[in-house]
Design a protein around this nucleic acid. Structure first.
Lengths: 257, 257
DNA sequence: CCAAAAGTGTTAGGGGTACACCCATGT
DNA sequence: ACATGGGTGTACCCCTAACACTTTTGG
């Protein structure tokens, strides 16, 4: 839509392009080496870390804004992206931090009082396949990298709190919706899915019971292909049955973790 | 804070007082005659019904705005009030409806483009004790009355959808949080609480099993006083144990309805 | 005495948990 | 062969649903 307009131009005339006072922040979860990870940006000026976020165009759906931001930072689309809470505390963005945020990038922006107003932010979380992501910093950041959920750096604003809330929301969601479709490659052994559930829930699950429970949900197709290469029995590979998976997404599910 | 400024003045200078583009809508649930009810306002101009809502002052917490609106319409405070979703569709408020909304009240407001901008709204739901509420219309409405959830009138904008979402959210919440504290008088028979659960869930519950389940949560104190006046065995009265109730609110609960 | 609704008991079944046992495979 | 981890079976326990039986009260 406004894809062709350069970021500087957009921000300098933010009032013209964006919905005022509203931003979107994405908590993007990925999975690698048995660890749940979050995609973060490092601000060029302050060297502090932040969630990928952005503003909403005046005629843009908020969901679409979140999708757009997700796509810009990961290169991916059609992912599981879920609104979970709106953060509206007056103290959530401190003016000094905002100034630092934009200063080194472009001092002129400081004159732009639009950026200095109070913002509320709508939080979304996404689950993405780690291996397919090509992290892409935005205009204000010099790095875009994964961080272990259990070892996060210092974050700006209330972004630490936002991540906490996202995790909480996701844990509840686990019981009602299937998860994993966008976190795993097409075919995968059950163990991989189990490790994801364990990472999200923060506790170990019994292998046998997990298998039965997840299979009972009947959202998986068993492949006859076997994974191999390790010194043990080759596990079956499974893939999500798209039809059943999305039906379960819509109609809900009772998994009981 | 701005309590002393009259509504007309506030709206005519909305830009000065309010956070732009953001509103709050409350779904206020009450309980009467075995029916779950929602408090609605009738717009003076269009005669259509709407949720009690409002704007957020520039230095006001969003939660506080919701609380303020709730208090204005019910006279009550310190209630269970829970943010459940943010509605941000571009099509949720159509300009003609907004015009109708404000026109008869004060045609001058039509000139005020602030009101005509796109709004997103943060949805909250509240549970209140029906008998204690003194419904109070706002500046744009001529009535403020209760409506059975199963027999709602035509609502403006996406307010019908907002109520649906609130109910959905509340149903999920039932399993993790105690409910009823603000819906019932201090002392009540278990049956009253059961009827509330049934109304929210939309299905009948077994009496014996409900009693055991709710007592097992140990958030109730049994009183030795008995309710009487009916041609059957007098039920014990119970009251919520505030301490345990709020502990359960904070730490979560596993009720399984 | 009877109807109505509260309180309490009982039982069968399902589901979850914990753990055991066997199977396949690379070293 | 053996260690490793996958697949599957099972026994136990607890929770739940469903329903029966008893108790209390006003009419």
């Amino acid at each position: 839509m406004h894809e062709e307009v350069p970021a500087t131009e957009l921000l300098q005339n933010a009032r013209q392009y964006f919905l005022p006072a509203v931003s979107v922040d994405n908590v993007i979860f990925g999975f690698h080496q048995d660890e749940l990870r979050v995609l973060l940006l490092r601000m060029r000026a302050s060297r502090k870390w932040a969630l990928p976020g952005g503003y909403v165009f005046k005629e843009e759906e908020i969901d679409d804004a979140a999708t757009r931001i997700l796509k810009r930072r990961t290169g991916l689309q059609n992912l599981f992206l879920q609104q979970f809470y709106t953060f509206g505390s007056t103290s959530r963005t401190r003016i000094e931090v905002v100034k630092e945020f934009f200063s080194e990038f472009n001092p002129e922006l400081l004159e732009n009082s639009w950026l200095m107003q109070r913002f509320i932010t709508v939080g979304y979380y996404a689950l993405v396949e780690y291996g397919r992501v090509i992290p892409q910093p935005d205009e204000f950041s010099d790095r875009c990298t994964w961080h272990e959920l259990n070892n996060l750096p210092k974050l700006i604003f209330d972004h630490g709190h936002i991540i906490d809330k996202a995790l909480q929301a996701m844990r509840l969601q686990l019981n009602y919706q299937p998860i994993g479709y966008n976190l795993l490659p097409k075919e995968f052994p059950l163990k991989s899915l189990q490790v994801i559930y364990e990472a999200i829930l923060g506790r170990k699950l019994d292998r046998g019971n997990f298998n039965r429970k997840i299979l009972a949900a009947s959202i998986l197709d068993k492949k006859e292909k076997l994974y191999s290469g390790a010194a043990h029995k080759a596990p079956y590979l499974y893939s999500f049955n798209k039809k059943k998976y999305f039906a379960a997404l819509k109609n809900g599910l009772k998994l009981g973790f």
